[in-house]
Write a protein that binds this DNA or RNA. Structure first.
Length: 875
RNA sequence: GGGAGCUUAGCUCAGUUGGUUCAGAGCACCUGCCUUACAAGCAGGGGGUCACUGGUUCGAGUCCAGUAGUUCCCACCA
């Protein structure tokens, strides 16, 4: 048999993925088993696989594959999100490249282009997930704009409207002038931005030569000022009460008002009030009944209401108006000033607060069960530290602006009755017409009398139904799938979207299913580079995911992603992580090569073989138990590390060396059978992490019947027992390591055989493992003695002493070594003795702890006696 | 401005209700090895006043308070 010394993942990954698909290994349908369900956080339909996706989906796949092997009916539902703003931006750009504006071609034609784009690029990311090994049930692939899904989104909007939770109103919203749409508070990122603080003086009416000076960072909004505010108790300005001032440049007359909001300490203590362009000013405007002058168009240029600079961009105008103010003598001072500016998460355009008519969802009532569920542990956040954040948000929840001024998405099912201020809300145009007729009492109305709202719903107003609508839970509430799979088990996502998405899914779950949407929410960190910078296109610090898979193998990448990403912590990515993953795969591969290369003989297993096999069995069970515990606490990195060490250290470094026949000799067929069994057991535990290589070796170790896949095998279980062989072999391996160290220090080559003399009160134990010691240490003889043998060096393993002949013994060095050990042990003994001499310790500490201290004392005393004895013999 | 978290080896992190030789793991590092599965490897090794200060306790990496540094969330003052 000729197997390459290097594992080449490219040769086998596609082969096994296809085999799994062909055998429908990922498919799930309701049956008598207990379900285990995960719904994927749907990536943007036009997205491509980046590092964050790889981490997110690797975790999900590990969980799903493990549960599948544990006998659950595992179902991982994949799909994509229509991502209204992001996708619309891409489509608009694509059309712009062709010289087309969406407004020229109209809604219908535009949507055709958008769907065409979706058909072409949508779902690329799902194909990429397959490269990673994701075991999703692809037959269940959902899209948030699927016909059935859309129906449920509209149904929910209508229902919330009927319940009185949805309302329409003029509000100050975050306006994205680039996408020309409102965005939610959560989609605004505040960043410190350098700017200027402009001190501008306004002439006071009827007081020749007198001015008030205000400070602003946004001089272009001066055009929309409708008042200047001062603090009512500010004595510096009492004389201004009731006066009017003139807006610079345009000389519009505006009142001076008094309001507590004004901070007397800031700037000059005078505040210009622009209700249309600042949320606080807006509130002041309401209190004082001020008019709002909207001086900005929806694209961020100055509107006609501004009177000057009409049609020019806000940032251009900021510079121009500064100059104009200076020339007019109104600019008193311009100082550099850093202030916080909101930017759109999607387009990175500076957000404008803007008054507009929008649809809102009142969150007060609907969010209550969702808060309770998390506080009472009905839904668990992992790690738990996120509960605080969640609680704070849910207790201070604001109304949700549901409408977006876009076309790509679910058009709001509100219909305006032309010529009136009335509207109706209904799932279909026909039903809307009926409602409109009833509302107006005009039975002769036709569709021509209605106009549907032009806006679409916020993307999250569809994805919040994901755990329900992927199973058609709203459109077909009694179907088998929703009854069987809902509530789902685990949700794996990033904390960034805890409020956007997770909280809202919980709200929708309770509102529409009367039950939580999932039991556990596993929040993983963000993938960053090794300087803790977020991976981003502009920094160019993100590796190409697919190249990574190609270079290191999907298994290697999966392991690399999981090695250093405990729950809630960011993953600091560097290539060495995936290298480690690849090296691990190679290690396993070579263990496979070794086992495959052995010739067999009919001889029965030797005693040493039997010991090795018994030990490895116990070790695997022990690890299985430990790993199970890690999984129950979502300690996925720890679970991986346990299986890594089981495979590499225990299986390869110790076990295979224990049973390995001398060069050129065959192995007992009986032993080989067991070795293969144990290899398989370890592979099963490893499979969820490294699905491809484990499947390949599974089929390489034995001939398998069709449809016999490791991914469908049973996960090994442990029971927490610690058979005595575990601790005994631990002592033996400790002894082996000590002798190896001794050899290295004395410059004894491993090729030279040695004689080993053992002084111990547990001769039987060493007798049992004589074969192992001899095999690992290349001994020519092993003998038990009662005192040090002449011409030997000594070393101690716990309370046992080993002597090894040396050509020349440096007695002084030997003495010094022993003296050092005596010193250390005496120090240790004194600490224990002090502790035990402390009456309060003996009285208060649990018996178990005291007993352990006593044992430590006895062991140390025994060891000291041993050492002193040896020293005496050296003379 | 308000709140939460974090600080343990060069790096990334474990350390579960305070108590075993508890100060750990992986990687990195150092030394010796191309030993007939694997140099993407083997064997061995060094390395930390558990941020600082104080307190509670028989006993503190673990609990409490304060200090410093750091990260995140929320709000946003023109």
């Amino acid at each position: 048999m000729n197997i390459s010394t290097k594992y080449s993942p490219a040769d086998i990954e596609d082969k096994w993925y296809q085999a799994w698909l062909d055998a429908k290994c990922f498919a799930s349908s309701p049956d008598e088993r207990e379900p285990y369900t995960i719904v994927i956080p749907p990536p943007n339909v036009t997205g491509i696989l980046h590092m964050g996706h790889m981490l997110n989906n690797t975790i999900q796949d590990v969980l799903v594959r493990r549960k599948r092997m544990e006998g659950y009916n595992a179902c991982w539902v994949p799909g994509t999100d229509h991502a209204s703003i992001a996708t619309e931006a891409k489509v608009v750009n694509m059309l712009a490249d062709q010289g087309i504006s969406k407004f020229d071609i109209g809604r219908k034609k535009y949507l055709e282009h958008a769907f065409e784009w979706k058909e072409k690029y949508g779902g690329i990311i799902l194909q990429q997930l397959k490269k990673l090994g994701a075991s999703c049930d692809w037959d269940r692939t959902s899209f948030t704009m699927d016909e059935d899904y859309s129906k449920s989104v509209i149904q929910v909007f209508c229902d919330l409207y009927d319940k009185g939770h949805v309302y329409r109103g003029i509000r100050m919203v975050n306006w994205d002038p680039s996408a020309k749409t409102a965005v939610s508070d959560e989609e605004v990122i505040h960043k410190d931005t350098p700017g200027n603080l402009y001190h501008v003086r306004y002439a006071i009416k009827d007081m020749e030569g007198e001015f008030v000076t205000i400070a602003t960072t946004r001089p272009e909004t001066i055009l929309g000022d409708t008042a200047v505010a001062i603090h009512p108790e500010d004595e510096r300005y009492t004389y201004l009460h009731g006066k009017k001032v003139l807006v610079p440049l345009i000389n519009r007359e505006i009142p001076i008002i008094t309001d507590d909001y004004v901070d007397r300490e800031f700037g000059t203590g005078c505040l210009k009030v622009t209700p249309a362009h600042d949320i606080n000013d807006y509130e002041i405007g309401i209190r004082h009944n001020l008019p709002s002058i909207d001086v900005l168009n929806e694209d961020g240029t100055i509107s006609e209401a501004g009177e000057m600079f009409i049609g020019e961009d806000r940032f251009v105008v900021r510079k121009k108006i500064s100059k104009a103010l200076e020339e007019a003598g109104n600019l008193v001072e311009k100082e550099p000033y850093n202030h916080s500016v909101g930017y759109s998460e999607r387009t990175d355009a500076a957000i404008e607060p803007r008054l507009s008519m929008q649809w809102f969802l009142n969150m007060q009532e609907v969010s209550k069960p969702a808060l309770k569920a998390v506080m009472e542990g009905e839904i668990e956040l992992i790690p738990g530290k996120f509960i605080n954040t969640y609680k704070y948000w849910m207790e201070n929840v604001r109304d949700w602006c549901l409408s977006r001024q876009l076309w790509w998405g679910h058009q709001i099912p509100a219909y305006y009755i032309k010529g009136t201020n009335e509207h109706v809300v209904a799932p279909t145009a026909e039903e809307a017409l009926e409602k409109a007729k009833a509302k107006t009492g005009n039975a002769s109305m036709t569709m021509d009398n209605l106009a549907q709202d032009e806006d679409v719903l916020d993307t999250w107003a569809s994805s919040w139904l994901w755990p329900i609508s992927t199973f058609r839970g709203l459109t077909d509430p009694d179907n088998e799938d929703i009854k069987y799979y809902y509530p789902t088990n685990d949700l794996v996502t990033a904390p960034e979207i805890l409020f956007f998405w997770v909280a809202r899914m919980i709200i929708a779950g309770y509102e529409y299913m009367g039950e939580k949407p999932f039991k556990n929410v596993y929040l993983h960190g963000i993938v960053r580079d090794d300087k803790r910078r977020k991976m981003s296109k502009s920094l160019g610090n993100s590796p190409d995911s697919l190249e990574l898979i190609e270079k290191f193998g999907a298994d290697g990448v999966r392991v690399g992603m999981l090695l250093a990403s405990p729950a809630g912590n960011d993953l600091l990515y560097k290539d060495s992580l995936v290298e480690q993953g690849r090296n691990f795969a190679n290690k396993i591969w070579n263990a496979f090569r070794l086992v495959k290369g052995w010739e067999t003989s009919d001889t029965p297993s030797s005693d040493t073989d039997k010991i090795a096999i018994e030990w490895m069995k116990a070790k695997i069970k022990d690890a299985a138990f430990e790993i199970d515990d890690h999984f129950s606490k979502f300690r996925i990195s720890d679970a991986l590390m346990s299986v890594y060490k089981l495979k590499w250290d225990d299986f390869c470094s110790w076990f295979l060396e224990m049973v390995k026949p001398p060069y050129g000799e065959p192995i007992s067929a009986e032993t080989l059978e067991s070795v293969i069994d144990l290899f398989e057991e370890a592979l099963k535990i490893l499979h969820p992490f490294m699905p491809f290589i484990t499947e390949e070796i599974w089929h390489g170790l034995r001939d398998r019947e069709n449809g016999n896949f490791i991914m469908l095998s049973d996960m090994p279980k442990g029971n927490g027992d610690k058979p005595v062989i575990l601790s005994e072999i631990e002592l033996i391996t400790e002894g082996i390591t000590a002798v190896r160290n001794f050899r290295a220090q004395k410059g004894l080559s491993p090729k030279e055989s040695i004689e080993l003399y053992i002084k111990s009160d547990q001769k039987a134990l060493f007798e049992t493992y004589r074969g192992l010691l001899s095999k690992f240490l290349n001994t020519s003889k092993i003998e038990f003695v009662d005192e040090q043998v002449d011409g030997t060096g000594s070393l101690r393993v716990r309370t046992h002493e080993f002597f090894i002949p040396l050509g020349e013994v440096d007695v002084e060095a030997e003495k010094e070594k022993i003296l050092k050990e005596i010193e250390y042990n005496e120090g240790f003994l004194i600490k224990i003795q002090k502790k035990l001499a402390n009456e309060r310790f003996v009285q208060n500490a649990p018996e178990k702890v005291v007993a352990l201290e006593r044992k430590k004392q006895a062991d140390t005393e025994a060891k000291l006696a041993l050492l002193k004895d040896s020293l005496a013999q050296l003379g």
